[in-house]
Structures are given as structure tokens and as C-alpha cells.
Amino acid sequence: MWKFTVRRLLITTPQIILLSAIVFILAKMMPGDALTGLIDPTLSQERIAEMREKLGLNNPWYIQYRDWLAGVVQGDFGQSFKYQMPVTELIWQRVINTFWLSLVSTIMIYAIGLPLGIVSGRYNDRLIDQLITGYTYLGFATPVFIFGLVALWIFGFMLGWFPTGGSVEPGLEPGTFEYILSKLHHLLLPSLSIALIGTVGTVQYLRSEIIDTKQRDFIITARAKGAPERRVYNRHIFRNSILPIAAFFGYEIINLINGSIFIEQIFSYPGMGNLFIESIMLRDYSVVTALVLLSGILAILGALLSDIILSVVDPRIRIK
């Protein structure tokens, strides 16, 4: 088990290095550089050339990459030109906000998806299943940013039940009960928007797994043992159907990153996604590269997590 995990971790190292190179090269290939957008237009050409030289922007790309990578390894992603602060510091606050958003969304995704999937699969083709399946089709067809906008408009703007932006009420002392409550209040609507759309995949997947498992021979064996339906479902059908869902958990993280980019923008929630779009607009490349690299690493780790979970829950691929 440990050997397997360590081996998988070792494999991810070259993946991450490759990812960093691609991210860096792509950023370099984009038009303009850090000095194009934000410097004083009255500055003379000589002065700009001098600054270029000083910042190492005239070096060949591999030297620049080496310097950048050396910084990254030490947790230094450079300066943000927009905010005039170290990227690491800037991102850190945003990462925490996004973490809470993702956590609450994930809980909601499973809190909604598991019961709906189970009911839908157990009573397939009955009315209740048709209603749930109808919802999943609607969810598949609705882009999350449209849904988020409508939710914001109805519950935030018209009904005023939820705040329409930010991550916390200003003027509250961090750590107090009111502060946490306010944070949660700000999280609910964006999380719910992500979850209601994001969960439809889980519902559909679980439904088809259950329908599939229901027809397996070992379910007949269980019934032939004299097991009551409740036991047949709980011990045999659900447990076996939830396995691929559990294994999918790691990949769910990747989806959350994608989903939160739009949702954070719509709810002006100060998270990574929001920062990402803003930085692209302003050509704040040191922030963009940092964020892309971070999301990439998260995706790789998510896939790793899925592999590990699967090997833990499924005895057929258990590593000894």
C-alpha cells in the first residue's frame, strides 16, 4: 500500500515538472511581458531596456525558466504587478477562500447526489426516477454560470436572502462566531449553485451503477440466502455501486476548480478563480502562471487521490 503510494508520488514528479515547463513557455509566448502594460508611458526607451535587463527578461527562455523554477521551489512566484505584492501572499488568501467554497460545494454535491442517485437507481423507471432524471438532464443542459446568475438574481437580489458578493461581511473580527457565520452565509449560494449543477453527473453515474448492480447474479444469491430487501440493497447493491463514485472523488476536485472559476466571478467571491480571470485581463502573468501551475498540481493530485481511494476500497486492485 505505502509502496504503491510512494511509487505513484514519484511518477507525479516528472508530470509536475513537465507541467511547469509548459505553463512557463505558454506564458512567455503570450504577447507582451510584465513591463508592457503597467509602466509609466513617459519612461524613456533606455530606461525600459535597462529594467528589462535587470529583470532578466532578455535572457534566453531556459535561463528565465531556471530562475523562475528556482523561485517556485522556494515558494516565490514573483511579484504581482497589479497588487504590488508577492504572488504567494496574494494567492494564499484566495486559496483559503476557494478551499472553503470547494469544501462546502463538495459536501453539498454528495449530500444531494447520493440520495437522489440511490432513489433513482432503486426505483428506476418509476415516477420518482423520471423526476430525478429530468432534473439531471436539466442540470446537464444548464451552464453553471447561467444558473449562478439566475440564483444570484432571485435569491440574492430579489429576495435578498443571501449577500450578492464578497466572502465575509466587512468589519467583523476574524475568529468570532459572527465572522464564521457570515463566511458561511456568503458561501451558501455560490456553493449551492455549483452543487446543484455539479451533482447531476454523480446522480446519473450512481443511478446507472445501481441499475447495473441490481441485475448481477450475486444479488440473486443474496436473495436466495433469505436476505430481506433492505439488506440486499444496503449490503450488496449500494456498497458495490458507491465504489466507482468513491474512486471518482479525486477527479471531482478538478471539476470543482473549473466550476468555481465562473461562480467566483459571478458572485465576486475573492477566490482563485476570480483572481485568475482578473489576472488574465490585466496580463498579470506571474499570477496567471502561479494559478495555472497550482490548478495543474491539484488536478494531478486529484487523479492520484482517486487511484489511492480505488485501491483501498476495491479488493480486486488492492496492492500488496
Binding site: R216, D217, F218, I220, T221, A222, R223, A224, K225, G226, A227, P228, H236, R239, N240, L243, D314, P315, R316
Partner: peptide, 23 residues
Amino acid sequence: MNKFRGNELSMIFQDPLTALNPL
């Protein structure tokens, strides 16, 4: 029926590869 099944009345199945719960 469940009082009989697996008790006084039991069954052996055709395909042993699929008749047991793999997990």
C-alpha cells in the same frame, strides 16, 4: 419466503464466477 430461503430451501447457482459478491 425469506424464512425458508437459505434455510430449509436453498439453491446452488450456475456461474460461480458471478454468483459471489466480488467485494
